[in-house]
Nucleic acid binder design. Sequence first.
DNA 1: CTGTTAACGTTATAATATAACACTATGTCG
DNA 2: CGACATAGTGTTATATTATAACGTTAACAG
Lengths: 165, 165
Amino acid sequence: MSPKTQSPGIAFRKHDHRRCQRQLLSEATQLCAERNLRLTSRRRQVLEILLASHQPMGAYDILAELNRSSRNEQIAPPIVYRALEFLLGEGLIHRIESLNAFISCAHPGHRCGAQFLICRDCDQVAELEVSDNDLLAEAGDLGFAVDHSVVEITGVCAECQKHVG
Amino acid sequence: MSPKTQSPGIAFRKHDHRRCQRQLLSEATQLCAERNLRLTSRRRQVLEILLASHQPMGAYDILAELNRSSRNEQIAPPIVYRALEFLLGEGLIHRIESLNAFISCAHPGHRCGAQFLICRDCDQVAELEVSDNDLLAEAGDLGFAVDHSVVEITGVCAECQKHVG
DNA sequence: CTGTTAACGTTATAATATAACACTATGTCG
DNA sequence: CGACATAGTGTTATATTATAACGTTAACAG
């Protein structure tokens, strides 16, 4: 059984990062085992960086982080992009198109589409899983076969509205 | 009064491009006049290229098109990006984040968010205007103040499903 | 007609992403 | 075991997308 998933909008509230990070990593490990996939050390390394950050990171930010931790090696972009490609394919991370960035998935394994609320003040991103009936109905009416959906809402989160106002 | 707007999914159906192109250009002209904005020849040129294409185009595609039409000049990226910035700001075009591309708006002036159905077979993009109640309700519950939304659905349009199947 | 500002033009460079090819590790099957 | 096939990694070079910085020109207000 999959453990309890995160509540919507958790990224905007205080919570124990360390704990959710550990949990998500173990879910990922299990999921790869089930699917007979290799969560190699590179892939795990990249996933851990994204889990630790809990915020969107650009590929080159991740690259810099890799190069910081592993002295002696000089790691190049394709290595990062390949790990990201794997993690994206397995639904362990998401790509935020409007930021050209990547973020760890809050509900790994769920293959359905996610939605993101992006706070332009604190740069936190909350992942939702709302089924989007109106839009899917419209796509259905047009006979459009949906493959993948990108839903990214930019604005200001509740917390940041307090601080500014 | 604003003229009759396009029906949803028109991009996926046969229709008179020439006509809708002319109409949208005239709407844009009128809208800039109303807002006291300068639809300069550069800006109009870029808008016309996007209207003529009726499909998403990368900034460098537009640039190439500009350089093709205007012999003698060698136009540089910032010129295109600035025109695009203006047109985006006035809601005359949209940016398709998942393609790093731009497309003319089917409903210029409507300031509300649009949704896109992107066919990965024929590369046509249909612009919808569905109000997305479920998602907005969820954002509201979290106290999130929405600014801008990106909704891009990739898949296969009805026409292309026929041809492949 | 002149000062102010918005738009344009130009050069250089930043940021993001991938192609192509060589090497290494992992697993398979004789 | 050892030879093969394949998936993953490493490396170099380069493509693609986007912007910073600064000088010039055009539009317009007074």
